[in-house]
Amino acid sequence: MSIYILLALLNGVCIGASRAINGRLAQQDGAFAASWWNHLVGFLLLSALLPMLSSSAGSGLADAPVGAYLGGVLGALFVAVNSHVLTRLGMMKTTLLVIAGQMLTGILLDRLAGIERPALAQLLGAALILAGLWLARRPAAQPATARAAAR
């Protein structure tokens, strides 16, 4: 179990780094260019790694349901929108809003699928993230020496 926790944490680090890189690229070339490069490099990397890691690389692509390709479309849209928003809101606010949106969508999808989970705990978690976002928007308190120097 601990290896999966470490992998999830590593995934979070990779997502944060990817967002920062895509945000910089979006500032230079635009959000859609950032999404294009993100997915092109990812495609090339996975195309090289998949045959080495799996004996069934590429099998079943023609048999995949149309909905299976929706993930790629949503992923490209996510990177483009995230890159666009990141340059305007900053890393922390964008990340908190994305996580809150993921939590609320997960709660909704669980409910629609009929999966009974303690919704109160899930909603409380989303509320804590939104509270963190609200606290982050407030200006930082200045030390007394800085306030005195400002007068």
Rank of each mutant, 00 (worst) to 15 (best):
L97A: 15
I129Y: 07
T105L: 13
S54C: 10
L123W: 08
V41C: 11
A136V: 05
S18I: 08
G23P: 14
A34T: 00
L25T: 13
L49T: 03
A141F: 05
I115K: 14
I5D: 00
M92N: 13
L70D: 01
V98S: 15
R19W: 14
V98P: 10
L135R: 04
A17W: 13
P139E: 01
A119C: 07
L120Y: 06
A48M: 04
F78S: 09
V41D: 01
G132P: 00
M92Y: 09
A48H: 01
S83Q: 10
G132S: 02
I3Y: 02
A146Y: 04
S18D: 05
L7Q: 03
L89W: 11
Y69W: 12
A150E: 01
R138E: 09
R88M: 11
L9M: 03
L70K: 06
L25N: 12
V41K: 08
V98W: 08
L108Q: 03
S47R: 11
G42N: 06
V81M: 08
G23M: 14
L123E: 01
L130R: 10
L7H: 02
V85D: 07
L25H: 12
A121W: 11
I3W: 10
A20T: 15
N22M: 09
L40P: 02
Q27I: 12
I3E: 02
V98D: 08
P143Q: 07
L50M: 06
L97V: 12
A100T: 00
A33P: 10
G16P: 11
E116G: 09
S47H: 09
L96E: 05
D110M: 13
L9S: 03
C14M: 09
H84K: 13
A131D: 00
N38C: 06
L130E: 01
G101Q: 10
A144D: 09
T94L: 15
L112T: 07
A148P: 02
M52R: 12
S59C: 10
I21F: 15
P65Q: 10
G75E: 00
L135F: 02
T145F: 14
A31L: 03
S56C: 06
T94E: 01
L7S: 07
F43H: 04
G42F: 02
L44I: 12
V73K: 08
W37D: 07
A62D: 02
A150D: 01
A149S: 05
A33K: 13
T94G: 03
L86N: 11
A148C: 12
A131M: 02
A127W: 00
A141K: 12
L96C: 04
S2L: 12
G23C: 14
F43G: 06
D29L: 15
L77E: 03
V73R: 07
Q27Y: 09
R147M: 14
R111L: 07
L120Q: 06
G12E: 05
S59H: 12
L50V: 04
I99A: 15
M1C: 01
L135V: 04
P118A: 04
G125Y: 04
A127S: 01
S83L: 10
A34H: 05
L7Y: 06
T87F: 06
P143R: 05
R19C: 15
G106T: 09
V66F: 13
L112F: 11
P65T: 05
L70Y: 10
R19Y: 15
I129V: 12
G42L: 07
L45Q: 05
R138Q: 07
G30T: 01
A141R: 09
G114E: 03
G106Q: 11
